[in-house]
Design a protein around this nucleic acid. Structure first.
Length: 1091
RNA sequence: GCGCGGGUGGCUUAGUCGGUUAGAGCACCCGGCUGAUAACCGGGAGGUCGCAGGUUCAAGUCCUGCCUCGCGCACCA
């Protein structure tokens, strides 16, 4: 049998840390899963974080929402497995290690040794693992960190290989040569979602260059923002439909700034529409030429010999390209085949020579120009211009027309901040464009929260899908399992067994190979060591790439189970997953790669529901980032307000998908308001329960037989719980939790407990006291369950003390659909689910009446303030006018209002008059523009009673409009001279106007009672100051002057209320040193002594 | 430049289908209540609802344009 023990003061932090130990000892997490092991599965997939950075508060937010849903679904009876995961490959890890070991180039890494480097990476990924683990445990994110999936594990890599082979076999994986954003510092190209991470606004020089025609004195003017690509120029593209102008310089302009220029008489060709933008000289237009007429004309190379002509007959000629526009530049596009996507495609099409003028290290190759050879291209802008201006005899002089700084967003490396170069390179791609329709289809089936992320942002991304550049010329990652011979024959290896087989085959063919054991490390450089053999007997080397690390995490749904190599078929029953939840920044990241992999490998979506969280901003609305140093340390709050308050704050601060301005004061507020209040309610119950030896297993009084107050709070609990649940199912966790908090603070604490205090003070056993205890008991238990998914600590302490069991093993009070046989996470029997709900009876009439009663109690206080009558001085009578019959609440109301009796008064006119107002919704359509005038007419009417009668009789026409009863609203106001007020409940036709009137007359009896209450309150306050036990008795002396008579009954009442064993009332002056106060002209002194 | 989401007292925010006096919380001031907690109740002060137009009897809400913040896309020549 469980009997609650007393609660004591709240120390949230030690409460939580003590529970962490308890949970650990009890294996609470495992038990919570075990408790629903027969339930329908609800599959959650953890997006793997990288543990080579310190976790911040923004990570806590994501984990809070993951945990919330998993705990909630578990309580609903679903089996929710939660495997942890770590993302361990990729550039961030390499960069970190490179920095630490000072290996900032690929050469130095290879010099250092790839094995040693990768060993360092393997170690580095765990740098902050313990910090992550501690954070995860402290916030009570229940996830299995003891058996996580780790992307560097051989099993994981093997599954990735398998997936790649599926793509390869479907011809969705191909080797290509494309212009990609490339970072020479990291030696790696990027896919579009990584490039998106690094756009920065920069001001760079742009140049207008003269390309001199070979058979003509004129030059074609072209523009570029990347002067370093000019040595690679092999063509000029014009728009066939664009009109170009040949113009002759008439005179020098005034105030020329910068380098470049043109002689008078020189002739330039450019798009006619752009002349004004580009030309600084006054010119004469000699001729207008359609673009198509320029095509085929040849011009002199800018840097003769920089690019060999080869067998190209189109090099250094004007080419036609329909993508050329006149929105900026000159309408002529300088084409350097290797350094622009359009350039490359055009070059391939028309047969331009494709040679690099820039090496993979970002420096010019030898033989370009003596001033440029071997230099980093981004530092050569100036030299290129100098050369073109004609300072060097090796090139034709005066080819620079103009320089102009240009402000634009340019992609930068998201790791090193260096500008990326568009660079033609070998790369591997996944043919995402081939499965675009399927991507769109699958995305349509996903339940996105919020829906606009799926339809808008993500949908847009997919509609513009590009082939996924998936290979990286790096070291630390999942190696690309493709081997290739010199003729281009390829093999994709999909498993270790296959690798072993192929190695054996190669050995048999006479190719030397190291051993390939079953536990061969699937990383570089080990896998590079194997040479396979092609069907034609030629040696095959591995393509020297590793995978984009986003590919790894995209494989998580199956690679975490080592699919298809595991034998338990865990994967088949857990795919696609039911729920994922990450920050909105994963739209192009994980959300995409999951879908990309599942579509190409399984022709299936990867997830059914996706909660996309808003960004976490600091208190000033700035994004939290390491570089800004504005990351909030979660421990600041774990150690102050605790994880409960931190989590509750996060959920209630706004919609999950909205950006959250993380405000430390908000956490404090949540603690003080929500958790302290909840604790004190609990404490009130637990302390008396312990004192009285309350046994929750005694047969409780049936709810119907309990007091109205009990029935009310139980009904209200039911209503609140249902709405809370609705909020959860519609992803409106914030609204749900705000409303629940309101229930706890206002309904439970400020009304139910406040009104119930005296019931528990009663020392004798009584049905009423028992009813109150059972009610509180039930409310607290249900509340604990509702709160548990969001803030799992305090409620577990409460639940354990009240029931002896953990709340995390409890059923969701609104129903357990997961426990229904044959249910799935998507479909269950609503009727049978309803039968599993466990909520007290609902009584909406009672809820409405109580709301009115509370309104009236507040109204009473307002009346007294208006009438300047102090709260403790009783009134003889209070009148309630109109409204429902509140007789059952008269006792309650008379206490709240401090009146002797409550009466029902039906004669409204005794206290009130009416006023008429327009019902705009009804009248406006009829009255149109006159509606406001009519409103004023009604408002200003001197005899609203008569007017109302007219309206009712259909005799009222104002400004030509017949006013009907439905066109007006009747409002009641108090007549002058009454201490009264009116409350309005409901809206529109159902609005109720109820008035409260207080009798303000004094009698000696009332004055005596009021005085008694004032004295009592002072003494009680003194008792509190003296820190007296509740049961302690005292001696009291009171001296009163100019006071109303204090009747014997009231003297006794004071003694009883204050537990005074001796009390003396004197009418003379008090001795020195006693405490005193004045009330309504009376002077009271008193002395309290503990005995 | 294109798209999405914001902009409401000092701060955090609610505001449904366009409807009467824009609602809370924190902080502030005054008063009250309390064996009721870091609480509670009443009152006060504090709002050009980003700006400007428009539709309408009526706009925080709908439309257009602009400003601004965040995010995403495209930024090529």
């Amino acid at each position: 049998m469980v009997r609650p023990s007393a609660a004591g003061d709240l120390d949230a932090v030690s409460l939580e840390t003590a529970l962490l130990d308890t949970w650990k000892n009890e294996n609470a997490f495992e038990s919570s899963i075990g408790s629903s092991k027969d339930g329908a599965p609800f599959i959650f997939l953890e997006g793997p974080p990288t543990a080579n950075g310190k976790p911040g508060i923004h990570h806590v937010v994501a984990r809070a929402y993951k945990d919330l849903v998993c705990r909630w679904k578990t309580m609903e009876g679903f089996l929710v497995q939660r495997k942890g995961g770590w993302d361990t490959h990729g550039l961030p890890v390499e960069i970190e290690v490179q920095k630490r070991l000072d290996l900032m180039s690929n050469e130095s890494i290879e010099e250092f040794g790839m094995q040693a480097f990768n060993d360092a990476c393997r170690e580095s990924v765990w740098t902050y693992e313990s910090a992550w683990r501690e954070m995860t445990e402290r916030m009570a994110y229940w996830v299995d960190l003891d058996n996580p999936y780790v992307t560097l594990d051989n099993n994981y890599v093997e599954s990735c290989w398998w997936a790649l082979k599926q793509m390869f076999d479907k011809n969705l994986l191909y080797r290509g040569h494309k212009v990609l954003p490339y970072c020479p510092q990291t030696g790696t190209s990027y896919s579009s979602h990584e490039v998106a991470l690094g756009y920065k606004e920069v001001e760079e020089p742009s140049v207008y260059i003269k390309f001199k025609l070979t058979d003509d004195d004129a030059s074609i003017l072209a523009w570029t923002t990347t002067p370093w690509t000019l040595p690679g120029n092999v063509g000029l593209a014009v728009g066939p439909e664009v009109t170009y102008a040949r113009c002759r310089i008439r005179e020098e302009p005034e105030g020329w700034k910068g380098r470049g220029g043109a002689r008078v008489g020189e002739e330039l060709i450019l798009a006619k529409d752009l002349m004004g933008e580009v030309l600084r000289h006054h010119v004469d237009i000699i001729e207008e030429i359609p673009g198509s007429a320029l095509v085929g004309r040849s011009y002199e190379p800018l840097f003769p010999g920089a690019v060999p002509r080869g067998d190209s007959d189109t090099a250094w000629t004007v080419l036609s390209a329909d993508w050329v526009t006149t929105t900026d530049g000159t309408g002529v596009v300088h084409t350097a085949v290797m350094y622009g996507e359009d350039d490359y495609n055009l070059g391939m099409e028309v047969g331009l020579p494709a040679y690099h003028t820039v090496g993979m290290n970002g420096h010019f190759v030898p033989g370009i120009h003596p001033q440029l050879d071997g230099r980093y291209v981004k530092e050569c802008d100036d030299s290129v211009m100098e050369i073109l201006v004609g300072q060097n005899e090796n090139v034709s002089s005066g080819l620079l027309y103009r320089e102009k700084s240009y402000l634009h967003d340019y992609p930068h490396c998201w790791r090193t901040d260096h500008p990326l170069l568009y660079y033609a390179m070998d790369s591997w791609f996944v043919r995402m464009t081939a499965v675009k329709e399927r991507l769109l289809e699958f995305n349509d089936g996903v339940e996105w929260a919020p829906d606009w992320v799926g339809e808008g942002r993500f949908g847009e991304w997919i509609r513009n899908v590009k082939d996924w550049a998936i290979s990286r010329e790096r070291y630390w990652g999942t190696p690309l399992p493709v081997w290739r011979d010199e003729d281009g024959n390829m093999k994709c290896i999909g498993s270790i067994a296959e690798l072993q087989e192929e190695v054996a085959k190669a050995k048999a063919a006479g190719i030397e190979n190291p051993d390939c054991p079953a536990d061969v490390d699937l990383h570089r450089p080990v896998v590079d060591g194997f040479t396979l053999v092609s069907e034609h007997g030629k040696p095959m080397k591995r393509e020297p790439f590793v995978m984009d690390c986003w590919f790894d995490s995209g494989c998580a749904p199956f690679a975490q189970w080592h699919h298809p190599f595991d034998e338990e078929n865990t994967f088949d029953s857990s795919f696609p997953v039911d729920y994922i939840c990450e920050g909105v920044d994963q739209t192009r990241g994980w959300f995409y790669t999951l879908l990309a992999v599942s579509t190409t490998v399984f022709d299936s979506p990867a997830y059914k529901r996706c909660l996309s969280l808003g960004l976490i901003l600091d208190a000033e609305g700035k994004k939290m980032s390491k570089s800004k140093g504005n990351i909030v340390d979660p421990w600041d709050h774990f150690n102050r307000e605790g994880a409960d308050a931190t989590r509750w704050y996060m959920v209630t601060a706004g919609a999950p998908w909205n950006p959250l301005k993380f405000d430390s004061n908000g956490v404090r507020e949540t603690y003080a308001k929500m958790f302290l209040t909840l604790w004190n309610v609990y404490r009130f119950h637990a302390d008396y329960a312990a004192l009285d030896g309350f046994d929750p297993e005694t047969q409780p009084l049936p709810v119907e037989e309990r007091s109205r107050l009990d029935r009310w709070i139980l009904s209200k609990l039911h209503t609140t719980a249902r709405a809370y649940h609705e909020g959860f199912t519609s992803w409106n966790f914030h609204k749900a939790c705000r409303d629940l908090e309101d229930f706890i603070v206002n309904d439970l604490s400020n009304w139910y407990v406040r009104r119930s205090r005296r019931r528990l003070w009663d020392e004798a056993e009584s049905n009423d006291k028992l009813a109150c205890q059972h009610t509180l008991h039930e409310v607290l238990i249900t509340l604990s369950k509702l709160i548990a998914p969001v803030s799992p600590f305090m409620v577990d302490t409460i639940h354990r003390n009240l029931t002896g069991t953990s709340v995390h093993l409890a059923d969701w009070p609104v129903g357990t659909p997961g426990s229904i046989e044959g249910a799935t996470a998507d479909v269950w029997d609503e009727t049978r689910c309803e039968a599993t709900t466990n909520l007290p009876p609902q009584d909406s009439q009672l809820e409405n009446e109580m709301e009115l009663v509370r309104e009236l109690a507040e109204t009473g206080r307002r009346i007294r303030i208006d009438a300047q009558r102090r709260q403790r001085l009783p009134c003889a009578e209070g009148f309630i006018v109109a409204g429902p019959n509140l007789e059952p609440y008269h006792d309650l109301l008379s206490e709240e209002l401090n009146v002797e009796t409550i009466s029902i008064e039906t004669d409204l006119d005794r206290f009130q008059q009416i006023a008429l107002a327009v019902n705009f919704r009804a009248l406006a359509p009829k009255a149109k523009g006159d509606v406001n005038a009519i409103a004023n007419e009604l408002k200003g009417n001197e005899d609203p009673e008569a007017l109302l009668a007219d309206i009712k009789a259909g005799n009222c026409i104002i400004m030509g409009v017949a006013i009907e009863e439905s066109d007006v609203e009747v409002r009641r106001t108090e007549r002058d001279g009454f201490a009264a007020a009116t409350v309005t409940l409901g809206e529109g036709d159902e609005a109720q106007h109820v008035s409260l009137v207080l009798d303000m007359q004094d009698t000696p009896e009332l004055l005596s009672k009021g005085l008694a209450r004032d004295i009592t309150r002072r003494i009680q306050s003194k008792r509190k100051d003296l820190n007296l036990e509740i049961e302690a008795t005292i001696d009291v002396d009171v001296w009163m002057t100019n006071a109303p008579e204090l009747f014997a009954d009231d003297q006794e009442w004071i003694a009883k209320e204050t537990r005074a064993s001796g009390i003396a009332f004197n009418s003379d002056n008090a001795p020195e040193g006693t405490e005193n106060f004045d009330v309504d002209g009376a002077h009271i002194s008193y002395r309290v002594q503990s005995n």
